[in-house]
Nucleic acid binder design. Structure first.
Lengths: 200, 200
DNA sequence: TTGCTCCTCACGTCACGTGAGGTGGC
DNA sequence: TTGCTCCTCACGTCACGTGAGGTGGC
């Protein structure tokens, strides 16, 4: 909802010609964060972790990055979003430089990449199944939009014809729409009669 | 590699008839963990968070769960794997019980589910793009398998014909296979001559 | 001179992991 | 009686988030 970084337009200079937003100029920490949709803190943290390295600092101490570091950050961000830990990502980044020859590096990299691709396929499968489950759930729940003052509503929807007639209902429907939950504050030893006020 | 829970067979009793692994028997914390591929700690943590609730305890203090709680745990696990926070998941789980009528609940749920489905689509897109990038990278790197003692190897692979001839190379190739990195221990002010020992 | 950007600590948070030390049930 | 399972604290970890207080550059 609220974006983590002040998402103002990056280069609101007068003319795009002279505004200095040109290619292959060095990037600040803020540029890196904006262009990768991450945060200042993340860029600095990745530097601490040895994943990114600024080429220089201004005399004021501001970091300056090459554009290749942005590509690196973008790859790391995507791999993090795919669920890899920073340790696993570091291994991938270090594969080539820790090999003795090109052939050795290629062998290690081929294996590792194939493994990561298999894992991505598994994850894509899981997310797709969840998606289908939610889609089917939403289409059933849409039939409840006109449910007002129904005798079954909060506690016994599973006895309602709309829900009960579903053969092989999606899991999210079973979990979200079956017996209502009372997550906290259940008072089982409460004296009966205080709960419902009957009109006198 | 090593599975987090001791993955022994759950019910190694004599005959499957009498071994008591039947349907709708109550589940222990360990059953819940095994059947959801999570851990004892996670099940307990979800109880602390109000997401799961055991129906009872044995006199020894062991938790007992209904089978519906397993479905709940499975849904929560999948949503966590999809990147939702426990706070977001709790909101989804509480939607129905916090609504006034069936229609109101359905309205809230329809909106929320549609939103989550959109987010899943975005995530699926991102993971698919990463997958394609890795696949293309692997297919290029496969050509390096026979690279031995090459003049360009560690530092100048981007000048090698195999790499340079790629028009629009995948990002992972650029990051993983361009100029080699020396992540730690760069000594720029080192006195020259100590690094390489020349035979006398 | 005024904002906006970036800096360095340093403590907080989220979702668990990982023992320590003890009991339970077949 | 012996294992294996489960229990309750309680501290650790990973990947950052979030101020506090200060400087920088157009």
């Amino acid at each position: 909802v609220a974006d983590p970084l002040h998402q103002t337009a990056p280069h609101t200079g007068s003319s795009p010609e002279e505004a200095g937003a040109s290619r292959d100029r060095q990037l600040t920490t803020g540029d890196m964060a904006r262009l990768s949709n991450s945060t200042l803190r993340t860029v600095r943290f990745y530097e601490e972790e040895g994943i990114l390295r600024p080429v220089a600092r201004t005399e004021g101490g501001h970091r300056l990055f090459e554009r290749t570091e942005l590509a690196r950050l973008l790859l790391v961000s995507d791999m993090r979003a795919a669920g890899l830990s920073l340790g696993e990502i570091k291994e991938l980044l270090a594969m080539k430089s820790s090999a003795e020859s090109g052939g050795a590096a290629a062998k290690v990299a081929t294996r590792a990449l194939a493994q990561r691709i298999r894992e991505l396929d598994e994850k894509l499968g899981a997310l797709t199944r969840l998606r289908e489950d939610l889609v089917r759930t939403a289409s059933v729940v849409a039939a409840c939009l006109s449910c007002e003052g129904h005798e079954f509503f909060p506690e016994q929807c599973d006895r309602c014809a709309i829900i009960a007639s579903e053969k092989d209902p999606p899991r999210a429907l079973k979990v979200l729409w079956s017996v209502g939950e009372k997550p906290l504050g259940i008072v089982e030893t409460a004296p009966a009669g205080e709960t419902t006020k009957e009109p006198e």
